[in-house]
Write a protein that binds this DNA or RNA. Structure first.
Length: 294
DNA sequence: GCCCAGGTGAAGC
DNA sequence: GCTTCACATGGG
């Protein structure tokens, strides 16, 4: 090899109907942090800086890149948001959520990082999930060359976490989630589960397989299916979405979680997971100042 | 101090 | 089948 550089350290993509701030700050990915007018983060083994200007996205990396497919895949740049939103139910709640969060997108994250992240997410606030994952990456990830003052790290591999001790994991402040992450890392590293094979399975089969892993229940499985594997029908129901469904669709009525589960699975259409993300973000950031009339 | 946080698993009816 | 509870840790 001559070492001749092919490609470029920066690239520009046209953006339409894409709100990067909301997308990177909507509780689906936990490693992005604000950097000047944009964001810094890590995709696979690359440090990345993203800045939006009008209708374009400017991407900066450390090493020259020839093929940007990995970036377009992660950010889902080719998704037509109009087509997605057209599939949503035509009700007041969805209209209000779309009006408030227009441009919010779903990412397509690396499966292991997504799985490990959501195992760590249970009964934690998003800000704390970020802290745990940052600590885990600094302690167990590989340092990555980056164009920034603060060092960047890859997300630690299942092999690395499998060979760590549970106590070392607990040092990252993950508490009772440590044995779950440790056990699941060992299963993945040992080949007991092949995450990549889930891409080719029906939703129900893939979900059942994920739920066999320690620390993975219905909610975590649905998050991974939606945010990593692209199953658009997966509809994670957490405390926020439960609250959103109750307030927006069944006000002043006693509705059991099982009924809401059925409602979620039958009402929201082919991009139900996308609709779920709009409801989640709408309720979480909208707080008291929601658009929906009461 | 108290309550809650993008839940799960195990034990008790 | 359900309902209830423990599980670490930190923020409001």
């Amino acid at each position: 090899m001559t070492g001749q550089e092919i490609g470029s350290r920066t690239a520009t993509f046209s953006l339409r109907d894409y709100d990067l701030d909301q997308t990177l700050n909507s509780g689906q990915a936990f490693r992005w942090r604000p950097s000047g007018e944009g964001w810094e983060g890590v995709i696979e083994e690359r440090w990345v800086r993203l800045v939006t200007r009008q209708d374009s996205l400017i991407v900066e990396t450390f090493a020259p890149v020839e093929d940007w497919t990995w970036l377009k895949e992660y950010l889902q740049l080719d998704v037509n948001l109009d087509k997605v939103i057209t599939t949503f139910p035509k009700d007041e709640a969805m209209r209000a959520a779309v009006a408030a969060c227009r441009g919010l997108r779903l990412l397509r994250q690396p499966p292991w990082e997504c799985l490990a992240s959501f195992i760590l997410s249970s009964t934690k606030q998003i800000v704390q999930i970020r802290q745990i994952i940052a600590a885990l990456s600094e302690r167990f990830g590989d340092p990555l060359p980056a164009c920034c003052a603060t060092p960047a790290f890859s997300f630690p591999s299942p092999e690395t976490l499998a060979s760590a001790s549970e106590e070392e994991l607990r040092a990252c402040k993950m508490g009772f989630r440590a044995p779950y992450l440790h056990a699941t890392a060992r299963l993945v590293a040992g080949g007991k589960i092949d995450l990549v094979s889930l891409f080719h399975q029906p939703l129900g089969d893939a979900r059942a397989r994920l739920m066999q892993l320690p620390g993975v229940g219905r909610k975590v499985a649905d998050c991974v299916l939606l945010f990593a594997f692209g199953f658009q029908a997966a509809f994670p129901i957490d405390v926020w979405v439960l609250k959103a469904l109750r307030e927006l669709y069944f006000p002043q009525r006693k509705v059991q979680p099982k009924q809401l589960r059925h409602f979620a699975d039958t009402y929201f259409g082919s991009c139900a997971g996308y609709a779920q993300q709009y409801l989640f973000h709408y309720l979480r950031v909208g707080g008291a100042k929601r658009i929906l009339p009461d």
